[in-house]
Every structure is written in structure tokens, then in C-alpha cells.
Design a protein around this nucleic acid. Structure first.
Lengths: 211, 211
DNA sequence: AAGTGTGAACTTTTTCACAGCT
DNA sequence: AGCTGTGAAAAAGTTCACACTT
């Protein structure tokens, strides 16, 4: 049986639903309708229900959704019931910020190693994470299981991408200024940078001037 | 004449085209075909050409695009020919990182003020940017022109959103963990957080296990 | 000859609307 | 009576394919 591929936008929304459900659970809300949950997620209720069909049948007709069980299903569906190991590529200020920040650990994402191509950074330790030379990458990848590569290099991010792909990594969060792409559909890259996000807003502001 | 609203995905791609063109210009590449530019941006060439129709007629038939002039048109179209003033909401480690980082200034985004609701942070200065109490917000907004609000609060991001909207801000970059939404379509919110981005990757990894 | 710009065809996504379960 | 789950309809987005310009 061929499982229908989940659309990118649906995935994006499912991730939001999960986060909003976690907050609802903290607020001790036990049950919610698609209408109300959709409102809190900025979407249409029919869309929310349709999105949830990818996860499975989870509501009770005439009643709504149990917050705790829907959260649990979504968390499981999105692969967030397990922990994931990260490596960092490129020791920029943002890279150091991420290594030192404890928030990702709380969410189950653990940096296991960092890589940099500049001699002066090698063997430094940030929050218990060692910085290795890119030359040592195959040695490091043999010693630990790595799931996700996070690229924070300010220059030549593509050298980290290439090194990660050579090691067989299939998931990359690219936080460098330059968006990165690969043809290989077995590899997933998420591109984000602050200037890119701000540019979408600057378009919006410029455009609303004209109105 | 009613100008057709630009789709969200098209906007996202246009922002990428601009960044890739800037890099091409740095590499002294003067001319490029839609085929080649599309390849570098991870899209189909017909889509790239269609996307560019929102910007205007910019290529030369039989030849391709002039990198410099296309970059210039896109930059202008996206509102990046001008500078924009930012304010920060919530003095988290990420907030401090952004204030201290010079990269955004290089791109034409300037933090003018920061706000925090915790007494102990008021009047601190980071990289020349002063931290104000939320109570002082209307005073600060009267003194300076503000274009974009950047929310980096680790808790209760919605209080900063509300304060910014009360001051008439129309563009928000929300970097807190909780996605934020508003009904008012004259307000644009970009939501991003590291855990959300990583969750998309964790779904991908979990899903490819099954294959 | 080469490669853009664009209607038309196709595909995907969203919304509607209601049958059916609790 | 109320709200989910889902086919069917509508809308939106993508790709094709070629006329047209340089």
C-alpha cells in the first residue's frame, strides 16, 4: 500500500498544531474542537481536519479532540517522541549561541560535536561540545550516531553541506545566509536565515505603502 | 487597476532568487539563463520565469538575464533598496545575540530599541541599543520610526505582540517558541523557531525509516 | 539558434457541505 | 444536537509547450 506523501505545507501546519496543543495541555485544557484549535493556529477548521487525516482518525464526532491524545499522536507522527543527535558545521556566533543554549536539549535535540575549518577553533569546547577539524569528520561520525547537521558557517556553507552529505547525513538545517539545495530527494534541507525572513516582511511593508 | 496578490510561495522563492543573484554578482557572473538560475535555486525554470512576471519583464529573449539588473529589480521589488528600523521584544539570549550581531546592519536592518518586562534588564545597553520597559513603549515609538518588531521573548511572547500591534506595527518576526497569529490581514507575522524547523527534519527522518 | 514570456493543460491544495457517529 | 471525517467542487499553483524576440 502506497502511503500518500505529505505536502510540505501540511507538515508545516502539523508542527504548529503540535506546539499549540502542548501549550493547551500546559493550560490544563483537556478537550478542543477543530474550530477552536484552527482559530488558535491561524487556519480554517476544514483544513485542520483534513491535515489530521494524514495522522489518523483522532477525534470524536460530536465532541472534538482530546488535547492530550492528539498531542501524543502528533508528537509520535512527527518523530518527536524520540531524541535526535545534531552536529554543527561552522563555528559562527550563531553556532556558538546554539551550542550554549539549553533550549534545544529540553526539546530532545542534542549537539554531539561541532566542526570548523579554522585551526584556531579546533579543540575548543562549548557547553561540553568539542570542536573538531573538518578532516576528522569521518572519525567522529564513526564514533557517534548523527541524525541532523546544522550549518551555521558565515562563509562557504557548502563545504559543510558536502562534508555532511559525504557522511551520509539525510537531514540538514541550514542557517547560513546562502540557501542550499540538493537534487537528491533522499536528503532534506531546511533553509532559514534572519535576513531572508526579514525580507519577506520588507516586501509586505513596501507593498502596503502602495495601497 | 488591481494588482494580483503575490502568493506566499512565490515571495519565498523571489527572496531566494535575490540572494543567489547577489552571490552570482560577487562571483562576477554577468549573465544567466532561467535554466541555470533555476537549478541553483532548486526550482523549475518555467516556475522561475513565471515568478519573475510578478516583478516585471526583465530578461532578453534568446539571451537570458543580466545578473546585475535582475538583482537590482528584485531588490527594489522586495523592499530591500531601503533600510528598515527594528525593535526587539523580550531580552532572551537569542534577543541579545541579535542585538550584538552586526550582520543584520550590513543588510540594512537596524535595531533602534529593545523592550523587556523585567525590571533588572531595563536601561541595559547592547551594541548601542537601549532596553526599555514595556511601559515606555508609546514614548519610544513617538521618538523613532519603527518598521518591524522582532519578538524573542522566551515566555509570554503574546504580550510583546499585543504591545507592538497597539503601536500600529504591521510587520512582526516572531522567533519565540510559540507561533503567533492575528486575524487582521494588514498585519504580517513571520514565525520561526529552531525546534519547529528541526521537527520538520525529524518527521522526514522518522518517515524515511519506514521506507 | 537560443531562451524568454505566457496562455493552456495539468496537478495540487483548499474549501464547502453534509453524511454519519457519539 | 453537535462536531468530525470526507467526497466533491472550487481555487490556486505548477508545468508544458511554443510563439516570439534578439
Amino acid at each position: 500500500m502506497k502511503v500518500k506523501e505529505i505536502p510540505e505545507n501540511t507538515l508545516h501546519r502539523l508542527v504548529i498544531y503540535l506546539k499549540v496543543l502542548e501549550d493547551l495541555e500546559k493550560k490544563r485544557i483537556e478537550s478542543i474542537s477543530s474550530e477552536e484549535l484552527a482559530r488558535r493556529c491561524g487556519v480554517n477548521s476544514a483544513q485542520l481536519r483534513k491535515d489530521l487525516t494524514f495522522v489518523g482518525h483522532l477525534g470524536t464526532k460530536g465532541v472534538g479532540y482530546n488535547v492530550r491524545s492528539l498531542k501524543y499522536s502528533l508528537k509520535n507522527f512527527l518523530g518527536r517522541s524520540q531524541e535526535w543527535n545534531l552536529v554543527l558545521g561552522g563555528l559562527s556566533p550563531l553556532g556558538i549561541f546554539l551550542l550554549e543554549n539549553k533550549e534545544l536539549q529540553k526539546e530532545g535535540f542534542y549537539f554531539m560535536a561541532a566542526f570548523d575549518h579554522r585551526e584556531e577553533n579546533i579543540a575548543k569546547i562549548y557547553n561540553g561540545v568539542s570542536v573538531y577539524s573538518l578532516d576528522q569528520i569521518s572519525y567522529v561520525f564513526k564514533a557517534i550516531k548523527v541524525d541532523i547537521g546544522v550549518i551555521t558557517a558565515e562563509e562557504n556553507p557548502e563545504i559543510y553541506l558536502e562534508a555532511f552529505l559525504n557522511q551520509g547525513l539525510k537531514a540538514i538545517l541550514n542557517l547560513s545566509k546562502a540557501p542550499l539545495f540538493v537534487k537528491d530527494t533522499s536528503v532534506k534541507i531546511e533553509n532559514f536565515s534572519f535576513p531572508l525572513a526579514l525580507t519577506k516582511l520588507s516586501y509586505f511593508l513596501k507593498d502596503s505603502d502602495k495601497g
